[in-house]
Design a protein around this nucleic acid. Structure first.
Lengths: 251, 251
DNA sequence: TAATGTCTAAAGGCCTGACCATTGGGCCGA
DNA sequence: TCGGCCCAATGGTCAGGCCTTTAGACATTA
């Protein structure tokens, strides 16, 4: 077990945390006034200056409002503040917090990802999204999935090879999971799925009966989700992606 | 014209605003140190206490990082459109290859994803990436993960709250999984994790010992990966994210 | 020579005590 | 009743002091 580094917490942080805890556990409900700075200082056994620093921290995050000559008002919930200081906070660039950081992480998201890696990731994630969709899909979600499935059927009937219906269905299922993050991830995975390498592979399987097999799989998935059977949906999606993996990489 | 309410801006805000302006116009570029508190106080004609209050405000919003015995470090913030590679990448729509396709799918990648959804997705994916990393990490990968861990330790030592080391470690682990798709997904998840809502939650709920707990978790994960113990790595990562979820959403 | 230990200036962390400015309620007189 | 005044309470700011940590210069040692 590695030794733990000592972390000398700055006082204002500790005070702010403690006040926050007290507020959250109802000791100082929103709308009420905190004790006077002087009292807080004495009760906490710190100087008034430190208490003030803590209060300013709480004020910046919008947890508290300081009223001169009156007291410190506890606010309902952190509300966006319009001061110039806060503006910066709201406009911040998630990744560009530290200049060193940019150079340390390979940010090129457009690098080509090997088809197998993409499918493997989908094989891991999508059974989960399907199961979640079975549990959480709204009626509108179900309708959207059905519509995508119909599109997929149409595509096949016309011999279309653009995979629009296919991709749409997978994305709709992810959206129906109730977790927006999964939907985003799926979009990225599918978006990357059409790089050069993937298209080359695609040419190979087009001669097979893959599209029909796929459609069959899709119908099973759809049925499981409509039946609200999470485990069946998970299994059906897993089987589907196993089929795809099998066609592409044989083995 | 309505009457102008005259509000004597509190001093720390004026100071913070002025410092912010100076940083913006390149007087104190990111990566540099602000003048010593005592000098600032003298130059601005205010007391050191007020300067300290302003610096704490800037620190809370992540504009600077105070390093004891060293100085006040200016961090990179708010360069919304110009510089960040990541920024551009996030605004691209990977799957917009087919114009027909584009109109049919909700393309808004930049929609804010609820913090809980992001963490939940990470909770599902990252144990897997950790397990894969334990199996597949090259020596170079291991070294990269160790380096990120060290960075995390450093961050904590300085009391920094930018989470750079933390994020770096999670990404490095995903990269070490041997599957580029996972690495890409992690980058997107973490990239989204610092939207407005998340920052707010973080400010409100992150207790002082959270970074420390996190670091402990990280050390366990690192140890498991180094030991090539996939199951231990999976469990350690799961436990870590459970802790994070607990801190943010339990109470 | 290279690692290790020591010293020290500079920087931030925190405290004390004082005084100023604003607020809001109570008192008093017209 | 009502307007004005007073004043205690509370936040705002300042000045100065002492302590701890940091990081580099310097000295020591293997």
């Amino acid at each position: 077990m590695p030794i733990q580094t000592i972390r000398a917490q700055r006082l204002y942080r500790q005070i702010a945390d403690q006040l926050l805890a007290l507020i959250r556990q109802g000791e100082f409900p929103p709308g009420s006034l905190l004790p006077p700075e002087r009292d807080l200082a004495q009760q906490l056994g710190v100087s008034r200056a430190s208490v003030r620093e803590a209060l300013i921290a709480l004020e910046v995050v919008g947890q508290v409002e300081v009223r001169v000559g009156h007291g410190v008002l506890v606010l309902e919930r952190a509300a966006p503040v319009e001061t110039s200081v806060m503006h910066v906070a709201l406009r911040q660039e998630p990744w560009a917090i530290d200049p060193e950081f940019e150079s340390e992480i390979e940010l090129d998201l457009d690098q080509e990802i090997p088809p197998f890696a993409l499918l493997e990731a989908r094989r891991f994630i999508e059974p989960e999204t399907a199961a979640l969709a079975a549990l959480n899909a709204s009626d509108a979600d179900l309708e959207a999935i059905r519509e995508a499935y119909q599109r997929n059927v149409e595509d096949n009937r016309h011999g279309g090879n653009n995979m629009v219906g296919d991709r749409l269905m997978h994305i709709r299922i992810a959206e129906a999971s109730g977790n927006a993050a999964y939907a985003m991830l799926l979009k990225h995975l599918l978006g990357h799925q059409y790089g050069v390498m993937f298209r080359r592979l695609q040419a190979l399987f087009m001669s097979t009966d893959m599209p029909r097999r796929s459609q069959q799989d899709h119908s099973h998935i759809l049925a499981a989700i409509e039946a609200r059977d999470a485990e069946a949906a998970r299994a059906a999606m897993a089987a589907h992606l196993d089929h795809v993996l099998g066609v592409f990489f044989d083995s």
